[in-house]
């Protein structure tokens, strides 16, 4: 089943409100931050194009390179959305989340081990294959566990606790936010040459 077919079926079978990451979806469709009440008059009605810009910044106005970091700004509302626009909104808010969840639920999600991701790296990231298991465990704690809401399926893997009305955020492969951090760790272990 294609990801959008899977989502559509789930929406029909699951009572609202639906949740994913920091947002909630209400029938109609309406999308807003879980902290916000749809009846609040102060919510700013935005377009999908506005949403593309909104997800790039934290509430403090800093750049937000990870879409699944737990700092999505609140105070906006998307409504009413067609099913097609809901899919697009979810792709902007949480890229690949629906396709990963759909594939994972159907037991067809391909999980890429860290070593395989690292072996693919070339150029300045070639060295990331030298990251040890201990370093990787430490880095997933300091980076993934604190900066990202996704549950990791590559080792060291997290446990995914499914909730009835919530779509889990799944990480199937070390991302390009993690790889430069891995490079920093590996580089810090290489003794500097004396001038």
């Amino acid at each position: 089943m294609k990801p959008t077919e899977f989502l559509n079926l789930w929406l029909h079978q699951t009572p609202p409100p639906w949740k994913i990451g920091e947002i909630k979806i209400q029938p109609g469709f309406t999308v807003l931050h879980q902290q916000d009440d749809p009846n609040q008059n102060s919510l700013r009605s935005i377009s999908l194009e506005n949403l593309t810009e909104l997800v790039k910044s934290t509430p403090a106005g800093n750049f937000r390179p990870l879409r699944s970091s737990p700092d999505l700004p609140s105070g906006w509302i998307l409504t009413p959305l067609s099913f097609e626009d809901l899919v697009l909104a979810l792709r902007i808010l949480y890229p690949s989340a629906i396709s990963h969840w759909s594939a994972w639920s159907q037991q067809i999600l391909q999980i890429t081990p860290y070593q395989e991701t690292a072996e693919r790296q070339t150029g300045m990231y070639h060295c990331t294959r030298l990251l040890t298991l201990e370093q990787r465990q430490s880095l997933t704690q300091s980076v993934c566990a604190t900066e990202c809401m996704k549950k990791r399926l590559w080792e060291p893997a997290d446990t995914i606790e499914t909730k009835a009305q919530e779509i889990p955020l799944i990480c199937a492969e070390a991302c390009n936010y993690f790889i430069p951090k891995a490079r920093e760790v590996v580089k810090s272990m290489i003794p500097k040459k004396n001038p």
Binding site: P95, S96, S99, A103, N176
Partner: peptide, 16 residues
């Protein structure tokens, strides 16, 4: 994107 989400690999899963 190479440096942002969705990355190259992730994007493949989204296209129907």
């Amino acid at each position: 994107f190479w440096k942002e989400e969705p990355n190259f690999h992730q994007s493949l899963n989204q296209i129907e």
